[in-house]
Computed example of a mutant assay.
Amino acid sequence: MGEYNDRVAEIQREWARERPDLDVAPQGVIGRLHRLAGHLTDELVAVYRRHGLGEGDFDVLAALRRAGAPFERAPKELAGHTMVTTGAMTKRLDRLEGAGLLTRRSSEADGRGRVVALTDRGLEVIDAAFAEHMANERRLLGSLGAREVEQLEALLAKWLADFEGPRPAA
């Protein structure tokens, strides 16, 4: 265990006292990542709210924006880009369509299929929200140096690949 003085270190000391037979060192990383994820989510969601969006709404609009002009994708494709079930996606699309941020229409390529597209207003909202989101993420990393950010990103990418597998090179 490192010599840190935070809530995780306190928990580790308590467990080490109560269960000296167990190595609680993994809590140092996992516990801190878990707590940090909660704090980061709170900070990220605050930006989305300022733009009238929830976390899932931001994801959908961002996935459409990343598609490039004409900023559209099929609902199934959207679900894949946002890690949302198709049932949850339908509710989200209903809400965003009701807010005037996207439209749904029949696919020209496949009359049975549907296409979801950003409206002009949706494009304005996601562009503004994403710009603030990037500034916020930069602020959240502000206590780390450039080299530390680089190292942390590499470590997290390596670890994430254990769960999700490596992605093919672009």
Score class of each variant (00 low, 15 high):
Glu150Val: 10
Leu118Ile: 05
Leu53Ile: 04
Leu53Thr: 00
Arg35Ile: 14
Gly145Cys: 03
Val149His: 00
Ala25Phe: 06
Leu141Gly: 04
Ala117Phe: 02
Ala154Asp: 04
Arg139Tyr: 06
Trp15His: 04
Val45Ala: 09
Gln27Met: 14
Gly68Pro: 05
Gln12Ile: 14
Leu141Val: 02
Leu40Trp: 06
Thr82Leu: 00
Pro20Gly: 09
Arg35Cys: 15
Ala9Ile: 05
Gly100Thr: 02
Gly28Ser: 06
Ala131Glu: 10
Arg35Ala: 15
Met89Ile: 05
Glu18Gly: 07
Ala99Asp: 08
Gly111Arg: 15
Arg65Leu: 12
Glu3Met: 03
Glu10Ile: 12
Arg49Leu: 15
Pro168Asp: 14
Val115Trp: 01
Val45Asp: 07
Arg32Tyr: 03
Arg19His: 15
Gly145Asn: 05
Gly38Gln: 13
Glu97Tyr: 01
Leu156Lys: 10
Gly80Ser: 12
Glu97Phe: 03
Tyr4Ser: 10
Glu18Pro: 01
Ala74Arg: 07
Ala62Met: 15
Ala25Leu: 11
Leu44Arg: 15
Ala63Ser: 08
Gly80Leu: 09
Trp15Arg: 07
Val47Lys: 02
Arg147Thr: 11
Arg73Thr: 04
Arg17His: 06
Gly87Val: 14
Asp94Pro: 10
Ala135Glu: 14
Gly142Trp: 04
Leu156Ala: 13
Arg19Ala: 12
His133Ile: 02
Ala79Asn: 04
Glu72Ile: 03
Gly52Leu: 07
Met1Pro: 12
His51Thr: 11
Gly122Tyr: 02
Gly56Trp: 02
Glu108Ser: 14
Phe71His: 10
Val149Phe: 00
Lys158Ala: 14
Gly145Ser: 11
Val45Leu: 12
Glu132Tyr: 04
Glu137Ala: 05
Gly145Ala: 08
Asn136Lys: 15
Ala79Lys: 01
Ala161Val: 07
Val29Arg: 06
Arg147Tyr: 02
Asp162Val: 04
Val115Lys: 03
Val60Asp: 00
Gly31Val: 03
Val116Asn: 00
Leu152Tyr: 03
Ala69Phe: 11
Asp42Cys: 03
Ala117Ser: 14
Arg17Gly: 03
Met83Cys: 09
